[in-house]
Simulated assay, not measured.
Amino acid sequence: MESLHLEGGRVLEFAVRGPERGPAVLFHHGMPGSAVPMDSVFASATERGYRLVTYSRAGYGASTPLPGRTVADTAEDCRVLMDHLGVHRYLVAGWSAGGPHALATAVADSPRVSGVLLIASFAPHDAEGLEFVNGMGVQNHVLFGAASRGERKERAIVSQMAAVVRDGDPSDLAAGMASLLPHVDAAELTGVYGADNATHMNHGLAAGDDGWLEDLQALTAPWGFDPRGITVPVELWHGALDRMVPLAHGQWLAAHLPTIRAHVESGHGHISIGVGGLGDQLDRLRYRTS
């Protein structure tokens, strides 16, 4: 893990995995999450020669909190990070809550971003014609329901959920998240991915819950950019069984982003769609950008 010092005294934590001269990919993690690479997710990409850049959004891991940050603010941090790494052209990928941040990076660093990969991404909270929480499990109804009740309530809910996630056994976590997990996701969470994800999330929450709270607020506020203005190729992958970010979110994005190509997988959920397939998903995106 490395640290980049930003203006204002903030620190951005990041890591780089894969061949030094491979095609660069900036990967935006979910909520909660961190820069800790997950081999169960990234191996299919690094084995094909991709160079994966991960980072911890503000408030997660060793990254300094940034109260009130927007999705667009995070994209600006990422633009500075890619400057620091000397990357001249790259792809962006985002899973779950990372999806909006991937789209934002394509806007903030449009001269260098050649394509966007969205995996089970959220649509805007105020998206016209979308009932944001419809089809979500109970925990997400509670989490996003707190967003309209003020910061004190948001912080209380996030704190309760973080206490369950932090240092939890993957099997216990799967049982506690049952309403969010179709069988294919539960199987992944209790397998190799579950151990990877526990390390990834525990690092993100080690210093506190600020990152999760800031993510919740950023996702449910205006993002700070219009995703419909993106002109580079966008590949979207969404599981039809997803109960964390229901398929309706992917369908909204597919209907409103002009350069998007959507792949709906009938037998996949929120987790299974992102485990083991990253290399193939990036190859398909890269083919479109060449």
Results as ranks from 00 to 15, higher is better:
S3I: 15
H5C: 06
L12S: 00
L12Q: 01
R21A: 07
R21D: 06
P23W: 04
A24N: 01
F27H: 05
H28G: 02
P32C: 14
G33Y: 04
V36L: 03
D39A: 14
V41G: 01
A43N: 15
S44E: 10
S44W: 13
G49T: 11
L52S: 01
Y55V: 01
Y55S: 05
G61F: 07
A62T: 10
S63W: 03
L66M: 10
G86S: 09
Y90R: 03
G94H: 08
S96A: 13
G98T: 02
A102W: 04
A106T: 10
A106L: 12
V107P: 09
A108K: 04
S110G: 06
S114Y: 02
F122D: 02
H125K: 09
D126H: 08
D126Y: 03
F132M: 04
N134V: 13
M136H: 05
G137P: 02
Q139G: 11
H141V: 13
V142T: 09
V142A: 12
A146E: 05
A146W: 05
A147I: 01
R149C: 09
R152G: 03
E154N: 06
A156K: 14
I157C: 04
S159Q: 13
P170I: 13
G176D: 13
M177C: 09
P182F: 12
P182K: 10
Y193R: 02
T199C: 11
T199M: 11
T199G: 10
N202G: 13
G204L: 08
G204Y: 01
D209W: 07
D210F: 08
L213Y: 06
A218G: 07
R228I: 06
D242P: 03
M244F: 09
H249L: 12
Q251N: 12
L253D: 01
A254Y: 04
H256S: 12
L257G: 06
V275T: 07
L278T: 01
G279R: 13
D280I: 12
Y287V: 14
T289L: 09
